[in-house]
Each structure stands twice: as C-alpha cells, then as structure tokens.
Design a protein around this nucleic acid. Structure first.
Lengths: 141, 141
DNA sequence: TATTGTTATACTCTATAACTATA
DNA sequence: TATAGTTATAGAGTATAACAATA
C-alpha cells in the first residue's frame, strides 16, 4: 500500500512538473506570462482586487505579488487606485489593454489545451476533472 | 460539449499551477530546488549522463541545463568528466554529497505528499494515477 | 561543416527584510 | 501598535545568441 502511494507521489510530481512546463512554453510573443495572466484573469472575473487579495489567491507573499503587478502596471495592463474607505489599501483595476491581452493570451493557450482535451474520451475527461478537484484540495490543505 | 472542455481546461490549468507552487514551497533550507533535484534524481538512477541527455529529459535548452548543472557543480553535488570516447561530450557524475542531498530532499518532499495521498480513498488514488498518465501524454504530445 | 557544450544577457517568478503610510 | 503595501536584494529557472572545442 505504502509503496503504491510512494510511486503515485513520484508519478504525480513529475507529471505535474512536465505539464506545467508545457503550459509555460505555450506562451507566444505579445502574451503575458503565467503568473501575470492569472492576475488579469481574476481582475476580469471579479473586478478590482487589492494587493492582499491577489497575493492570497496566488498564495505568494505580498512582496512577490507587488512585483508581479508592477510588471503589469509598467505594461499598462493594470492601474492602481487607492481604496477611498481605507487608504492603506490599493485596488488594482484592469485597463482596456489589459483586457485585450488577457483575452488573447487565454484564447491562445486554451486553444492548444482544449484541442488535446477534445481528443480524449468523455471518461478520460471526467478523470481529469476529478483529478483537478483533488489536486486543488491537496494544494490548499 | 466544447464549453465543458473549455471549463475543464481552465480548471486543469489553475489546479496544476496551484499544486506545482505547493510542491515548490515544500522545499526546506538545505534542500536543492526542483529542477536541480530532478537532475540529481536522474543521475542517481541512471548513472552519469551528458548535458544533452539531461536537457532532453528536462525538456529545456542546453543553455538552460548548463546553468542548472553549474549551480550543482558550484555546490559540489556533481562533477564534470570528459567522455573519453567523444571529447565533445561532458558527463555529469553524482558526488557523495550530491547523493546525500538528493536523498534527503526526496525523502522530505515525499513525506508531505505521501501523507496527503494516504488520506484519500483507493478510488481517488486510482483517479490521480490515471490523471498523471494522461497529463504526461498531453505534455509529451 | 556539424555537433556538443559554455557563457553572456535578459526576463519571470519567488522570498525575505527593511521601509512608508494609514488605521 | 497593527495593518497594507512597496522596494531592495537575492536566488532559481528559463530562453536566445554568440562562442569554443571536437568530430
């Protein structure tokens, strides 16, 4: 039993590393990188979020997130706005260019992955959907 | 149908990013980082490998791999040896300290993940095993 | 000429520690 | 004092391009 678990762990670790690296390499010129794309995706979905909210979602330190949004701000994809109710907080707002870049980047990367997924059987897709749920649960534990 | 696939793609992408980030953050002081650990693991399993072999396995460019092994060599975990049969090739050999670090790093990271996997049902573990196979297949396509 | 590997340069992502501004 | 955010510094990982050595 324990041996099976250890084997599964090793398989999982290397499969995740491999697919993640493939995700990253699917990035084309003009598209934003992974971590930045996630930020744009969240802002598009939820509207303005503070630095603290972004760093919690990404599970990185505030210092790290501050630098990620700095890169986005330098490129004009987000702007900072002070929260009028609590002037310590900074809200990050998607700009029109940020929205365009987010949508282009997402569309392109989804095209590749979705093509792969379409080629699977419905049963295999259900397996991946359940696995995604389990991985997220483990990661968040 | 297509909508389901798109949703699955988004789920998968974010779940993979999340669990990968968690894998990375399980690193303790004194342990080697992810990419370097993979190199040590391969050398331990297969014996000396050339730069080209390492970069193919990792699916990174030779230039990138050269820098990863430079870090390992700086720390004394691997040594370079010229291949006597083809003096263009460089073979990387695990040192005793490299073996110790590899084993400690692997043991510690496996402990955490294996604990998580033990808490799942056998059925859930089968799902993850199948998913690992599918992800690897997609990544290598 | 072709292959193998290295180095220089640059970019992304991450963390920690020291700092500022506001509550 | 406590909280929210920023900046400086550092390290890991990646890519590309120019280069050297060997086949």
């Amino acid at each position: 039993m324990t041996k099976d678990v250890a084997e599964l762990g090793a398989e999982l670790r290397s499969a995740v590393a491999r697919i993640y690296s493939r995700f990253r390499s699917e990035r084309s010129p003009g598209e934003v990188a992974e971590a930045a794309l996630m930020v744009l995706t969240w802002l598009r979905k939820h509207g303005p979020l503070s630095l603290g909210e972004l760093s919690e979602r990404a599970r990185v330190t505030p210092g790290s997130m501050s630098q990620t949004v700095n890169r986005l701000a330098d490129d004009g994809h987000v702007v900072r706005e002070r929260d009028p109710d609590d002037r310590r907080r900074v809200l990050f707002v998607l700009t029109p260019s940020g929205r365009v870049v987010a949508e282009n980047s997402l569309r392109h990367r989804e095209n590749w992955l979705n093509g792969q997924l379409e080629a699977l059987t419905p049963q295999q897709r259900r397996t991946l959907a359940e696995a995604a749920r389990l991985l997220r649960q483990i990661a968040d534990s």
